[in-house]
Nucleic acid binder design. Structure first.
Lengths: 140, 140
DNA sequence: ATAATTCCTATCGCATTACTCGGAAAAGCG
DNA sequence: CGCTTTTCCGAGTAATGCGATAGGAATTAT
């Protein structure tokens, strides 16, 4: 049940952008430095966030990244789901046909209900916390 | 945030033992068959559960495994923690000195509080469900 | 004795993670 | 214009863990 660095770094980076929101493009280099993340690795993660529409970028000198929405409108859950995929602890909870092969036993699977409750409680926590909440308790 | 098969199979196997609790030793073979798990792989998982004191084994013909406590006294959380390790989504939440190296930033880490809340909500769900609860809604 | 069963150690292919590397393309600045 | 800063992109890579499989030793009911 571990989170990978994708999720952790993603949230840290987005938190950093939230703290500096409204100050123009923030360079990846400065984010990486403040958050203690490998610059080159963070580059890949920001690509994911950009393609998902959560940040926009400005290339060239004095360029960088900015949030596309207000910090209060982006939850930690949004970021985790983009960086790590669905929060469901087991694949058989996923709705798409692709995964039904994993769930021939779905009809008589007693544990399935347990995992659904876990997923829901994780989502409830992650979706209740916005970047604005985190930026407010700024300890950087 | 995925659960591995260790946790899933572990819960399934323990659920199976709970359903047949009081019927003497249950062979690994029959558990594997009913739950759709590789017999040889399950063997390793049962070893972990045995060493943790949750099941006891009888060797030889007509042997097998039995729960060491009543189904109502074993929670899904117990099993998951044995099979998968701590439910903390990030290592920096672990108390032991071994992991402090990962947390030089602990003092000013805003995201840490988020992960603690996630862990607590996962634990609350998993610790609230016992094997007796699962056995009650037997769909096998 | 034999068959059934747990126990133990080792190995293995595969996927993922967490990077690193090298360079192309864009844009501000002198 | 040319230089530097910065994003963008694809490849490569070492280490790790997962989900088994393999083979056999030890134990015990029948």
């Amino acid at each position: 049940m571990k989170l990978s660095t994708k999720g952790r770094y993603g949230v840290s980076a987005m938190y950093d952008l939230a703290v500096h929101h409204g100050q123009g493009p923030i360079s990846l280099k400065s984010v990486a430095l403040r958050q203690g993340i490998s610059e080159h690795y963070l580059e890949q993660l920001m690509g994911t966030l950009r393609k998902a529409g959560y940040v926009k970028s400005v290339r060239g000198a004095q360029g960088g990244y900015t949030l596309t929405r207000q910090p209060a409108e982006i939850t930690v859950g949004d970021i985790i789901r983009i960086m790590e995929g669905p929060t469901a602890p087991v694949d058989c909870l996923l709705a798409d046909a692709e995964n039904n092969k994993y769930c021939v036993r779905a009809g008589h699977c007693v544990t399935r209900g347990v995992w659904a409750k876990v997923r829901d409680s994780i989502d409830a926590v992650l979706d209740s916390i916005t970047l604005a909440d985190l930026a407010k308790e700024d300890k950087s």
